[in-house]
Amino acid sequence: MTQALKKTPCYHLHLEADAKMVPFAGYDMPVQYALGVKKEHLHTRAAAGLFDVSHMGQLRLHGTGAAKFLESLVPVDIIDLPQGKQRYALFTNEQGGLQDDLMVSNLGDHLFVVVNAACKTQDIAHLRAHLPEDVTLEVLEDRALLALQGPLAASVMARHVPESSAMVFMDSQVLNFAGVKCIFGRAGYTGEDGFEISIPAEHAERLTRLLLAEAEVEWVGLGARDSLRLESGLCLYGHDIDTTTTPVEASLLWAISKNRRTDGLRAGGFPGAELILDQIATKDVSRKRVGMKGLSRAPVREGAELFNAEGEKIGIVTSGTAGPSCGFPVAMGYVATHYARLDTEIFAEVRGKMLPMQIAKMPFVEQRYFRG
């Protein structure tokens, strides 16, 4: 027997909006609405898209040793993360591979952590397996998570939460939204300005309706969320990064804090550190994650194999889309390091045809985070 799919606190709102629902990470989730994936994508780039991401894992780490503990599992500076700020982090394994990527916020009296939906069970087990006596893990099962994204997201949010206007990219604060204390992070997964909002489940439907009542706001499903993040050069765990890829292979060196990779008291100390730090020092990796621009009109999807001009296999595509905002197909994937230079022409095999592609800089569209 198959296990019943879980429902987010906004489930009935999706049905009300005639969403097409699909199974995703154990949840019944909206993949698209009446607008369709392309129009939802373009609406987010032009106005404000509202995403239900309540399937993600929301956790709290309490205790004076919480930052030191979490820092022992990630190659990121958590101890010096300022109160009211958040940071992108990576769970690494002993082989240097990536177990998940996550967001960590310092809310003063605790750390607020958001992990990927498909990985949250293993992430919770991973944290519990290493938990010291002075740290408590709280798994939040009673909260929704919404993302309001797009160039008009900030003006919409300011009508309901004026204090949100003072926030800049990667700020994280507890603010009052229509009488409810919610956790606001000025960040997102689209490359656009916006907010991720953690809401107590019993208030989720009412607050969501307030946002949907705004003229600029439209529901956006998982389909457009995927094409938006790919245009913005952002990895999807389980596709572009996984336990077999290291941060160096994945071109995520920027996500390893400087004080965790240079000589000093806090360098290393995370799973797989020896291998990862050696790769950073030597730059000796056999493959690299790259962006690719399609030189033909046909999109190249995940799983397409990549070849050089001589017909030798050199890599694979891990994500691909038609590029609704770009006007040309875009993809990311892994190629042998020798072929990772910008403007190198390679070929993707699609239905027996060799389609030309060019190694291109990511993001494919300008990221418009609000930095003040």
Rank of each mutant, 00 (worst) to 15 (best):
N259A: 02
F184Y: 04
Q3W: 01
G97V: 06
G97E: 08
K85S: 12
L228I: 10
E16K: 14
A4F: 00
A298W: 12
Q367S: 12
T190Q: 08
Q122R: 15
F51Q: 04
Y27T: 08
V74G: 11
G291P: 07
D109E: 13
V139Q: 07
D18C: 04
S155T: 14
V115K: 05
G26N: 02
A47T: 11
P82H: 08
S155C: 03
L59V: 06
L127D: 05
L277N: 14
P23H: 14
K288R: 15
A118P: 02
D80F: 10
L111W: 05
P324T: 02
A4V: 11
P75H: 09
V350E: 13
T318K: 01
G221Q: 05
L207D: 01
S232Y: 11
Q32M: 13
T246Y: 13
I78Q: 06
G311F: 12
D52F: 03
G188I: 08
F69E: 03
A255L: 11
A187C: 13
G233K: 01
V300M: 13
L295W: 06
S319G: 08
E196H: 03
H338R: 14
F270Q: 09
L146A: 01
L175F: 13
Q279S: 10
S325P: 03
L42G: 09
V168N: 12
D263Y: 05
V174H: 12
T92K: 07
Q279L: 09
V113R: 02
Y11H: 14
L145H: 03
Q95Y: 02
G327I: 09
A67R: 14
M157F: 02
M56E: 07
K353V: 04
M167E: 03
E249L: 08
